Amino acid sequence: MKRRKLGTSNLFVSEIGLGCMSLGTDYSKAQAVIEAALEEGINYFDTADLYDFGENEKVVGQALKKAREQVIIATKAGNRWTDAKDSWTWDPSKAYVKEAVKKSLKRLNTDYIDLYQLHGGTIEDNIDETIEAFEELKDEGYIKYYGISSIRPNVIREYAQKSNIVSVMMQYSILDRRPEEEALPLLHGHNISVVTRGTVAKGMLSDRMLEKAASKGYLDYSYEELEEVLPLLKEKLASSKSLTEVAIQYNLANPAVASVVAGASTPEQIKENARAAGSPSLSPQEISLIKSITKANKYDQHR
């Protein structure tokens, strides 16, 4: 498994990362998936304090304990569960971030977090205060580096200009090309890496295609458009490889992208994702063809 440098950090992340949200709380099943990931050379594991009310961090920390020095653990903060645990509120305040990190460290059973990420963000936040919190956590040794998880171009621009973030996690795929016009060039210019999620577009960019499509469509694609686009992508690009391989290689072709974070609930899915990362890169002609078949979506909302 190839590795890429994460922004200006000294972290080298595997081209496929494991998105841990889908692991569940059954430790033995989660451990089997994480061990399969380690065997495939995956060293980047992404969780959040929000997942399973913090139980996900406990599972990840326990499963990675023996390999701690060989792996990169990323987690996130900024969302607080209500007392009833039926919803959460947004809190990017310095006080909350500094409180949340200590709880994450305890659940992960580790002395430090490699990459600590703000789990969202709006332009109305006190961004300077949030940055101050992350910088202090770095100075205090609780975290090595920090980043944000956001698709909002205006928020991303603020952090790129004001902070020392090394990465931005964002949704990006063949069917969601919104980052291409604004976010990816901006971040690449600032030497900030992108970690992508949603790469297979809820399973539509896999061999199951329309079986995974909703009747209301996807983003600005109607169901009828998906009926046309998905088979065309498969016909033109996936005759000798899977659509998942095409989807992952499309993301990895962008110079701003360091890693594709993909969820997996079985060891077989891990192996499929690893195979996709190891498949041949797309040619410039193939990338042009993908762009001619799909939409150059733009961020109308989420500013």
Rank of each mutant, 00 (worst) to 15 (best):
N10C: 12
L11G: 08
L11T: 14
L11Q: 12
L11K: 10
L11W: 13
L11E: 08
F12M: 14
F12L: 13
F12R: 13
V13C: 07
V13I: 13
V13K: 07
V13G: 08
V13L: 13
V13H: 07
S14C: 04
S14G: 04
S14P: 03
S14W: 01
E15V: 01
E15W: 00
I16A: 09
G17A: 07
L18D: 05
C20D: 06
C20L: 03
C20Y: 00
C20M: 05
S22G: 06
S22T: 11
S22M: 08
S22P: 00
L23K: 12
L23C: 12
L23S: 12
T25M: 09
T25C: 12
T25F: 08
D26N: 14
Y27T: 10
Y27R: 10
Y27A: 10
S28H: 13
S28Y: 10
S28M: 08
S28R: 06
K29L: 14
K29F: 08
A30Q: 02
A30N: 03
Q31H: 15
Q31A: 15
Q31M: 10
A32T: 04
V33W: 12
V33K: 11
V33M: 13
I34D: 00
I34K: 00
E35I: 05
E35P: 02
A36C: 06
A36S: 12
A37K: 07
E40V: 01
E40P: 01
E40N: 09
G41E: 05
G41N: 05
G41I: 02
I42Q: 06
I42M: 10
N43L: 07
N43S: 10
Y44N: 05
Y44F: 15
Y44P: 06
Y44R: 04
F45T: 11
F45Q: 10
F45W: 09
F45S: 11
D46P: 03
D46L: 05
D46E: 11
D46R: 07
T47K: 00
T47A: 06
T47D: 00
T47R: 01
A48E: 07
A48M: 08
A48N: 09
A48W: 04
D49W: 15
D49E: 15
L50N: 12
Y51W: 08
Y51N: 07
Y51Q: 08
Y51F: 13
D52Y: 03
F53Q: 13
F53N: 09
E55P: 01
E55S: 03
E55H: 04
E55I: 06
E55G: 02
N56H: 09
E57K: 09
K58F: 00
K58S: 15
K58W: 01
V59D: 01
V60Y: 00
G61K: 03
G61Y: 01
G61L: 02
G61S: 04
Q62W: 05
Q62C: 10
A63K: 04
L64H: 02
L64I: 05
K65P: 09
K66S: 14
K66P: 03
K66V: 10
K66Y: 07
K66D: 14
A67F: 15
A67G: 04
A67N: 15
R68L: 10
